[in-house]
Amino acid sequence: MATLILKYEDEIQGKYDLEEGQTIHVGRKDTNDVVVETLIISGNHCKIDFLKEGLHLTDLKSKNGTFVNGKKVTSSWLKSGDEVTVGKHALIVAMTSEEAMDFEFEEDDMGKTMVLDPGRQAAEEPADDDEPLDGSEPTAVISFLKGGQGEVPLTKRLTKVGKDFSNDVVIGGGFTIGQTAFTISKLPDGYYLSYVGGMAKPKINGRSVGESALLHDFDTIEIGSDKLQFYLKK
């Protein structure tokens, strides 16, 4: 048996067991076995097959790549202790089956992989913390996590979101959703979300928005059954 440990920074977010003959899919879409709801990760990002010969990783033409121990790969065999990086998340491979015992990692190696910063390897991630103030401004984007597909760059100073087709971003109907449900405005100090109308009020990271609120990188916006993510793209 093999176990994949999903980590974000130092936090373990999940453990996934797989037996020979099984496959684990990793991606943003909820059809995957390992679902990571962040935009750096593609809808269907990569898969890991437990073949007779061992664990095999395949990158599913993901946008930002899949890395094994810091090296970008399109496909690779995995051994115990390997660290697979997707976006800012890491999957640590732990083999427990007898035939994999040969590959059992030393404790020192385990220690080494733990300090790797997955974020640093994924060089093509959409946003970075050390954005220079005087450099080119990042484009803000909202991307559908649920209820729609694709991403919408917020190129306008005022972007309207709602069920009416006159909006810049049209979201799923439902009578609780406003004709224009909310807007996002670019102000000197950032992007602000304002609630406009409809029974369904937008939520930012699960919290209801009163009148308006400043948006932060990677905030999730929920409206009715739709889920969007706000982020800054270089």
């Binding site: 100073r157 406009v196 009148e211």
Partner: peptide
Amino acid sequence: ADATELIAK
């Protein structure tokens, strides 16, 4: 010029 557009409440 700098410009800002906001929905009126």
